[in-house]
Protein backbone atom coordinates (compact mmCIF):
# COMPACT_ATOMS: atom_id res chain seq x y z
CA UNK A 1 0.00 0.00 0.00
CA UNK A 2 2.75 2.38 0.92
CA UNK A 3 4.40 1.54 -2.31
CA UNK A 4 1.31 2.50 -4.33
CA UNK A 5 0.91 5.84 -2.64
CA UNK A 6 4.46 6.87 -3.21
CA UNK A 7 4.91 9.40 -5.93
CA UNK A 8 6.45 7.86 -9.04
CA UNK A 9 10.00 8.83 -9.68
CA UNK A 10 10.19 11.46 -12.33
CA UNK A 11 13.07 12.11 -14.63
CA UNK A 12 12.94 15.70 -13.48
CA UNK A 13 11.29 17.32 -10.46
CA UNK A 14 7.68 18.53 -10.75
CA UNK A 15 8.60 22.17 -10.48
CA UNK A 16 11.78 23.82 -11.44
CA UNK A 17 12.94 27.36 -11.59
CA UNK A 18 14.52 29.18 -14.45
CA UNK A 19 17.22 31.69 -13.71
CA UNK A 20 15.73 35.18 -13.89
CA UNK A 21 18.02 36.50 -16.56
CA UNK A 22 17.32 33.51 -18.79
CA UNK A 23 13.64 34.33 -19.08
CA UNK A 24 12.95 36.69 -21.95
CA UNK A 25 15.93 38.88 -21.23
CA UNK A 26 15.17 41.79 -23.55
CA UNK A 27 11.49 41.99 -24.32
CA UNK A 28 8.63 43.15 -22.21
CA UNK A 29 5.31 41.60 -23.04
CA UNK A 30 1.74 41.73 -21.85
CA UNK A 31 -0.05 38.68 -20.59
CA UNK A 32 -3.77 38.56 -21.19
CA UNK A 33 -5.66 35.93 -19.28
CA UNK A 34 -8.87 34.48 -20.65
CA UNK A 35 -10.71 35.77 -17.62
CA UNK A 36 -9.47 39.31 -17.95
CA UNK A 37 -12.64 40.52 -19.68
CA UNK A 38 -11.50 41.88 -22.99
CA UNK A 39 -13.57 44.87 -23.92
CA UNK A 40 -13.34 45.55 -27.59
CA UNK A 41 -11.84 48.89 -28.57
CA UNK A 42 -14.53 51.45 -29.25
CA UNK A 43 -13.16 52.25 -32.70
CA UNK A 44 -13.42 48.63 -33.82
CA UNK A 45 -16.92 48.26 -32.36
CA UNK A 46 -18.01 51.38 -34.18
CA UNK A 47 -16.70 50.18 -37.54
CA UNK A 48 -18.28 46.75 -37.20
CA UNK A 49 -21.62 48.08 -35.96
CA UNK A 50 -21.74 50.50 -38.89
CA UNK A 51 -20.93 47.76 -41.38
CA UNK A 52 -23.70 45.56 -39.95
CA UNK A 53 -26.18 48.41 -40.27
CA UNK A 54 -25.03 49.23 -43.81
CA UNK A 55 -25.39 45.62 -44.89
CA UNK A 56 -28.88 45.35 -43.45
CA UNK A 57 -31.59 44.88 -46.01
CA UNK A 58 -33.46 48.05 -46.85
CA UNK A 59 -31.04 50.52 -45.29
CA UNK A 60 -29.92 53.50 -47.32
CA UNK A 61 -26.13 53.44 -46.90
CA UNK A 62 -25.79 57.20 -47.30
CA UNK A 63 -28.02 57.82 -44.27
CA UNK A 64 -26.02 55.61 -41.93
CA UNK A 65 -24.03 57.55 -39.33
CA UNK A 66 -22.94 57.07 -35.73
CA UNK A 67 -25.92 59.00 -34.44
CA UNK A 68 -28.61 57.59 -36.72
CA UNK A 69 -31.86 56.39 -35.17
CA UNK A 70 -33.04 53.08 -36.67
CA UNK A 71 -36.66 54.08 -36.99
CA UNK A 72 -36.52 57.86 -37.39
CA UNK A 73 -33.46 58.20 -39.63
CA UNK A 74 -33.05 54.88 -41.38
CA UNK A 75 -36.72 54.25 -42.06
CA UNK A 76 -36.84 50.86 -40.36
CA UNK A 77 -39.82 49.59 -38.39
CA UNK A 78 -39.82 47.98 -34.97
CA UNK A 79 -39.62 44.48 -36.47
CA UNK A 80 -36.51 45.50 -38.44
CA UNK A 81 -35.03 46.89 -35.25
CA UNK A 82 -35.44 43.50 -33.59
CA UNK A 83 -33.69 41.90 -36.56
CA UNK A 84 -30.85 44.38 -36.60
CA UNK A 85 -30.20 43.87 -32.89
CA UNK A 86 -30.06 40.14 -33.56
CA UNK A 87 -27.59 40.85 -36.34
CA UNK A 88 -25.37 42.57 -33.75
CA UNK A 89 -25.66 39.45 -31.61
CA UNK A 90 -24.38 37.34 -34.50
CA UNK A 91 -21.61 39.76 -35.36
CA UNK A 92 -20.21 40.01 -31.84
CA UNK A 93 -21.15 36.50 -30.67
CA UNK A 94 -23.14 37.77 -27.69
CA UNK A 95 -26.68 37.36 -26.49
CA UNK A 96 -28.59 40.54 -25.74
CA UNK A 97 -31.45 40.06 -23.28
CA UNK A 98 -34.87 41.33 -24.32
CA UNK A 99 -34.90 44.16 -21.79
CA UNK A 100 -31.61 45.49 -23.17
CA UNK A 101 -32.51 44.82 -26.78
CA UNK A 102 -35.59 47.03 -26.46
CA UNK A 103 -33.43 49.95 -25.39
CA UNK A 104 -31.19 49.80 -28.45
CA UNK A 105 -32.83 52.20 -30.87
CA UNK A 106 -29.87 54.05 -32.33
CA UNK A 107 -26.46 53.19 -33.76
CA UNK A 108 -24.87 55.04 -30.85
CA UNK A 109 -26.69 52.95 -28.24
CA UNK A 110 -25.67 49.78 -30.04
CA UNK A 111 -22.01 50.82 -30.05
CA UNK A 112 -21.99 51.70 -26.36
CA UNK A 113 -23.78 48.46 -25.44
CA UNK A 114 -21.35 46.26 -27.36
CA UNK A 115 -18.30 48.23 -26.20
CA UNK A 116 -19.34 47.69 -22.59
CA UNK A 117 -20.05 43.99 -23.09
CA UNK A 118 -17.14 41.93 -21.72
CA UNK A 119 -17.80 38.87 -23.90
CA UNK A 120 -18.10 40.67 -27.22
CA UNK A 121 -15.72 39.22 -29.79
Amino acid sequence: MRLLLRRPQLARPLTFSVPVNARFPHQSFTVRAFSSGGFLPKQEVQERVLSVVKNFEGVDVSKVSETAHFMNDLGLDSLDTVEIVMAFEDEFAIEIPDAEAEKIQTVEQAISYVASHPQAK
Binding site: S78, V82, E102
Partner: peptide, 15 residues
Protein backbone atom coordinates in the same frame (compact mmCIF):
# COMPACT_ATOMS: atom_id res chain seq x y z
CA UNK B 1 -49.22 45.15 -26.66
CA UNK B 2 -46.35 46.28 -28.82
CA UNK B 3 -43.56 44.97 -26.63
CA UNK B 4 -45.29 41.59 -26.32
CA UNK B 5 -45.41 41.32 -30.09
CA UNK B 6 -41.75 42.22 -30.43
CA UNK B 7 -40.90 39.77 -27.66
CA UNK B 8 -42.75 37.03 -29.51
CA UNK B 9 -41.07 37.98 -32.77
CA UNK B 10 -37.62 37.87 -31.18
CA UNK B 11 -38.35 34.51 -29.59
CA UNK B 12 -39.53 33.07 -32.88
CA UNK B 13 -36.38 34.25 -34.67
CA UNK B 14 -34.13 32.99 -31.86
CA UNK B 15 -35.66 29.56 -31.91
Amino acid sequence: SKSDVLHLYRNLLRN
